[in-house]
């Protein structure tokens, strides 16, 4: 087994451990919430005790807690998320489209901002002290520190209500009834609704990447190896690329972690734009104590973060040859 394989095996082991812990925490926390999904029905007097027992048995909620836990573990780790209690549909049928909606909005936005802001950050870091640097830092910090729903509302006011360029909310026109995947996500109507939340997301995340890339390049700028690159006759842009490559690590790590967190959606943004994403679905499910739905969505979110962490580690080892994969030293 090579060093790298050993490193990978170790990291995967840790990821599996973390997943188990996360899953357990979800279970414990949900069971600790007061009440049950049927509480409101019972207090309203619509159900008899016999009916309640029957329903509880149907969902397996009459079994001892450890049995529930084991069944839960088996199911969730095999991606059998079961039925939503309140919506009487398979959980996956409810979650999948929401998750898809969230990802189709956030992933392209994150990738775009990662590429554009990082390049911009490298450029302004290289030209330190320029007006472009000051402007971009102030601009992105402002966008980052303003709550995303405020920015979103302003954009809606400007571009939808004042200029009437794009629709203010929703993912498609109310009258549209798309058929099939292609029709849902590739229509002009969708794009028309897409552009505003996409822009807001891009701007919201831009500050992080810009600052990371800029700081990295500023830090590397005076270094001896760049001087040697310069002495070798590399052009300004080639030197900048080397500086950028050397300050890539924090950006990559941050990107991978953000990508994991994207599975949680941007709840506030989804609310403002009435975007039917997973963030809104989760809030609703917790309110209604819809155990299977909450369990499944939290599990997916946790799993995404854990997997992207793993990816970040692997990328780190790949991009930085000095990272000791054998885990020696400390």
């Amino acid at each position: 087994m090579s060093d790298f394989q050993r490193f990978l095996a170790k990291r995967i082991g840790i990821a599996i451990g973390l997943t188990l812990i996360a899953v357990t925490i979800i279970f414990v926390v949900l069971r600790m919430l007061p009440g049950s999904p049927f509480e409101s029905l019972i207090t309203a007097g619509n159900l008899t005790q016999g009916q309640v027992d029957e329903i509880m048995a149907l969902y397996g909620l009459d079994k001892p807690i450890w049995q529930q836990y084991l069944i839960y573990l088996r199911n969730i780790l095999t991606f059998q998320f079961g039925y939503s209690i309140l919506q009487s549909q398979p959980v996956w049928d409810i979650l999948a489209p929401k998750l898809a909606n969230t990802l189709i909005l956030l992933v392209p936005a994150l990738v775009t901002t990662a590429v554009v802001s990082t390049l911009l950050g490298m450029y302004v870091g290289w030209n330190r002290g320029s007006k472009a640097e000051t402007a971009s830092i102030i601009g992105t910090t402002f966008l980052r520190s303003t709550p995303v729903f405020i920015t979103a509302i302003f954009f809606v006011i400007i571009f939808s209500y004042t200029l009437d360029l794009v629709p203010a909310f929703g993912m498609r026109s109310i009258t549209a009834t798309p058929d099939g995947l292609l029709d849902t996500y590739m229509s002009m109507d969708f794009l028309h609704h897409y552009i505003l939340p996409f822009t807001v997301t891009v701007l919201f995340y831009s500050g992080d990447f810009l600052l990371l890339a800029r700081n990295g390049v500023v830090e590397k700028k005076g270094s001896e190896f760049l001087k040697l690159h310069r002495a070798k006759g590399l052009s300004e842009n080639e030197q900048l690329m080397r500086a950028g490559r050397n300050s890539m690590l924090p950006v990559i790590t941050y990107f991978a972690l953000r990508l994991g967190m994207i599975f949680q959606g941007l709840i506030l943004l989804e609310v403002v734009f009435a975007w039917p994403g997973i963030g809104r679905a989760l809030v609703l499910a917790i309110q209604q104590q819809d155990y299977p739905l909450v369990q499944a969505s939290v599990f997916i979110m946790a799993l995404a973060v854990i997997i992207m962490n793993l990816v970040a580690d692997v990328l780190y080892a790949y991009f930085d040859p000095t990272v000791s994969v054998s885990g020696g030293g400390a």
């Binding site: 270094s223 190896f225 040697l228 002495a231 006759g233 080397r242 490559r245 050397n246 040859p321 000095t322």
Partner: peptide, 21 residues
Amino acid sequence: VLWEDIAYIPQSAMDALDPVM
């Protein structure tokens, strides 16, 4: 002219090489 005619040996060999190349 640089490197073709005038080459340079930098001061601190520890930092003078690009660590990711």
